[in-house]
Design a protein around this nucleic acid. Structure first.
Length: 246
DNA sequence: GCGACAG
DNA sequence: ATCTTGTCGC
């Protein structure tokens, strides 16, 4: 049922109808329907996690159209080595609208995920999960199609409403503050390393916030404030774009 | 008209 | 996201 609802994304994508009132209402409907199924508790044991995927996209354009490429990097949890990678490139027909990122990027993500031969136990995204006006950031929305636990990691803060700023965590690796809105914890501002801006971690689905932060920190290396999962995916999209532009 | 605005 | 040089610091 959930899966069928999400397929409506494809109709909107294929049709290329952008942000008219009907389209926006459909997007609202999908998010509002799916959010009832969010389950922010672990559906796994941490020691069962073997393969973790990082997902990211890059964009470019020519005189004809706009294009995007999605890269997925699958890493082994303990060795942090890349086990597999997949990518999908194509024309982008959906604009970026804050709050509706999934409708722009999810079609690419699902196409790339189809190409994987391995089955990641968990996916990590650039962007939010539960930290969203409808608790339906891209990490959460993607979970319903991928059928796997997800984590959202955003590089900048998305305000949910008025007076919903976050408290800056102390300047120490691993330090965090809860992002609480109307008494509810939406996510965490996490200082992944000292002397870097915090990232914003929220559960996507089928994972609790504590575990999401723990896994995020597990993959943070010296080279980046982002976990290497999404960092490698980011680098892969840049490399892929250079390839496609020739 | 003005400000806000994950990627 | 993307367009882009230098520059400060380890």
């Amino acid at each position: 049922m959930v899966f069928i609802l999400s397929l409506q994304i494809y109709y909107m994508w294929k049709g290329g109808k952008l942000l008219d009132k009907k389209c926006e209402e459909k997007w609202d409907y999908i998010q509002n329907t799916l959010k009832a199924k969010i389950h922010l508790e672990n559906t796994f044991q941490l020691d069962e996690i073997r393969l973790v995927a990082g997902v990211d996209l890059a964009y470019w354009s020519d005189q004809k159209a706009n294009y995007g490429v999605c890269c997925i990097q699958v890493l082994d949890y303990t060795s942090k080595k890349v086990i597999e990678q997949a990518e999908y490139a194509g024309e982008v027909e959906v604009p970026y609208i804050s709050g509706y990122l999934a409708f722009r990027e999810l079609p690419f993500i699902l196409k790339a995920a189809e190409k994987l031969k391995t089955s990641p136990d968990l996916y990590m995204f650039d962007g939010n999960g539960y930290l969203h006006s409808r608790h339906m950031g891209i990490a959460t929305q993607a979970s319903f199609d991928l059928g796997k636990p997800t984590i959202g990691i955003a590089k900048t803060y998305l305000k949910i409403g008025n007076n919903t700023d976050f408290t800056m965590p102390e300047n120490k690796a691993g330090a965090y503050t809860d992002i609480v809105i109307d008494g509810e914890v939406y996510g965490r501002a996490l200082r992944t390393r000292t002397d870097v801006k915090p990232v914003f971690v929220s559960g996507g689905n089928w994972i609790d916030l504590h575990t999401a932060v723990k896994i995020t920190m597990h993959f943070v290396e010296k080279e980046s404030r982002l976990p290497v999962t999404t960092r490698y995916a980011d680098l892969a999209t840049h490399e892929a774009r250079r390839r496609y532009q020739k």
